[in-house]
Nucleic acid binder design. Structure first.
Lengths: 126, 126
DNA sequence: ACAAGTACTTACCCCAAAGTATGTATCATG
DNA sequence: CATGATACATACTTTGGGGTAAGTACTTGT
């Protein structure tokens, strides 16, 4: 059986790369502008929708909801809706979500180091 | 006429988020489909262009070059061209690039754990 | 009566990222 | 003298992520 050529490389790419590359696997789940930031805010504990929104003034509602749904689908957080009348919905990290803290920390550590490096170089050049 | 404000959110977002969020800072540098994979291949040592290309059969030349240039500009790798006649160009990680290994390892570790979790759940569900 | 708050949903649009395809310079080799 | 290898460059098209704006359903406060 010849391998399916599906519709051109990029579908092929996605799947192959996903299976081969754990980093890409992670990127699928926490990549993009907003997801890591949402996760970051939830690392400090359960928050309700409006709290997250206030913590991220620059995100649109559409993006926020969309990524919350995605993170839920990816089993990184849990949505909890109380059937009360002003809706009361909270989001909590799952175990998987909490375990991302090590990844996020590693990133943050590297980022700070790299930012410093940038400054040092700028100073040396100037 | 829906006019988009010149300086409206998404440009503002980028900058604000970059300054506020180290994770986004990292994403700018190693995010996307290809960059982490390129870095991964270079973690095992200096490689020439054609070697990287062969190691990543699904990337287009355009994307490969483009990301190599970007990674170079971001000070994550160094391009070394020997002025010989079949061109001989190698790429090596900088210190900053090598230090990404901790980040990439954290990602990989999480990914494998999470993949396993996915399998376990699938089995339990039947 | 009606505005305001909460947690979304939907429709429409734009742009940057990624893909496709082809071109370039140089020399070695058949 | 034409072909192939190497390391790119460039034009052109497509795709999808993200942005804006507006609507929904339900109730509380004034």
């Amino acid at each position: 059986m010849t391998k399916i050529k599906e519709s051109s490389t990029y579908n092929a790419n996605r799947e192959i790369v996903l299976q081969e590359c754990p980093v890409t696997y992670v990127m699928q789940k926490i990549g993009g502008h907003w997801k890591p930031i949402i996760l970051y805010h939830l690392l400090s504990g359960e928050k309700r929708y409006s709290e997250i929104k206030k913590a991220m003034p620059h995100i649109s509602e559409k993006m926020l909801i969309q990524h919350l749904k995605q993170l839920e689908a990816d089993n990184l957080l849990i949505r909890n809706a109380k059937p009360v009348v002003p809706p009361y919905v909270t989001y909590t990290l799952t175990e998987a979500g909490k375990e991302l803290e090590t990844v996020i920390s590693a990133m943050a550590a590297w980022a700070f180091k790299d930012m410093k490096r940038g400054i040092v170089e700028a100073v040396l050049e100037g």
